[in-house]
Simulated scan of single mutants.
Amino acid sequence: MNQDIIHIYFVPGLAAGKEIFKNIRLPEERFRMHIIEWLIPNRHEPMVVYAKRMAAQVKHNNAVLVGVSFGGVVVQEMALHLDLQKVIIISSVKARKELPRRLRIARTTRAYKLIPTQLVLSSSDLTKFAVGPRSKKRLQLYQEFLHVRDKRYLDWAIKNMVCWRRRQPDKDVVHIHGNGDIIFPIKNIENCMVIDGGTHIMLLNKGSKVSEKIIEVLAT
């Protein structure tokens, strides 16, 4: 196998599957894409334990890890167990201080416990899980890719997104973010590569721009 090939492992957003990366195009002579799909967490499983299980799916040393939204949070925890070339997050956050105020309030009040995941599981519309103003309308395109319909996973993921404990960003994490993201507004984000007009679903509707940014990061 060509030793110059870079293996890139992608982790999707909350409840999403591998199809969310369908518009990411990377030169095959330089990159190999691998998609890590969500594991179902054990009951009351700590993030550190879950991240180690997810990290076991990375089979190459010096790989690149890319996470989207909640997947961006998880890859930062996975990185603690791996020998990586680079960690890239997309439409995500690097520490709890980058979360919007409404999510910080939800953490303090534990309002996230009130989300009726069992009821929503019976619905075809998993965009109800999106956290943010007008998010249902904005995330309609995302709907066909949300398919992890497991109550334990959803309850666990929502809690761990809202209650992520990391206080200081890792300066080595590369952050790609859209300036139109209403889930994680860019006003709260520090040190990122900006995609103009990019929203929280820019992976789908600006896939070529996101691909260009990933290639740019790995060329430096």
Rank of each mutant, 00 (worst) to 15 (best):
E28H: 11
C163V: 05
L141Y: 09
K213R: 12
S124K: 15
H81P: 06
N188S: 09
N188P: 05
V49S: 10
K213C: 10
M202S: 00
A111I: 11
M47Q: 10
A16G: 04
E45P: 00
P12R: 03
S92P: 01
K151N: 14
I183D: 01
N61I: 07
E37S: 10
L65I: 04
P46Q: 05
T199N: 04
K209F: 06
I158W: 02
L84E: 04
H60A: 08
D172V: 08
H7A: 03
L119S: 11
K209D: 14
V174I: 15
E144C: 09
L99D: 08
V93F: 08
Y142F: 15
S123H: 10
T109Y: 06
H34A: 05
L203N: 05
I40D: 02
V64C: 07
D196H: 13
E77V: 02
E77M: 00
M54A: 07
E212F: 10
N42V: 12
Q143K: 14
E144A: 11
T117D: 11
K52M: 07
P41D: 05
I35N: 09
S123V: 07
D196F: 11
P133Y: 08
L114N: 10
V58K: 00
Q85L: 12
A95Q: 10
M1K: 14
A56C: 10
F184L: 11
G180A: 15
A51P: 02
P116Y: 06
P46G: 01
H7F: 00
V210M: 03
H81R: 01
S124L: 13
K136A: 11
R138D: 12
V120R: 08
I40S: 05
W156L: 08
I183V: 14
L146P: 04
A157Q: 02
I186D: 10
K59L: 11
Q140P: 06
A79C: 07
A95T: 11
P12T: 04
A51V: 06
R96F: 11
D4Q: 13
M33A: 12
T117A: 13
Q85E: 13
K206C: 03
K52S: 08
L114M: 12
V66M: 03
A219P: 00
W38Q: 01
K187N: 12
V58R: 00
I195M: 03
D150E: 15
V174P: 01
T199L: 02
R134P: 04
R107S: 14
K59C: 09
W164F: 14
I158G: 00
D196I: 11
L119G: 05
I215Y: 05
L65Q: 00
E77K: 03
R107M: 10
R102T: 11
E216T: 12
I24H: 02
G178N: 03
M193T: 12
Q140G: 09
A111K: 11
E28N: 13
A51Q: 03
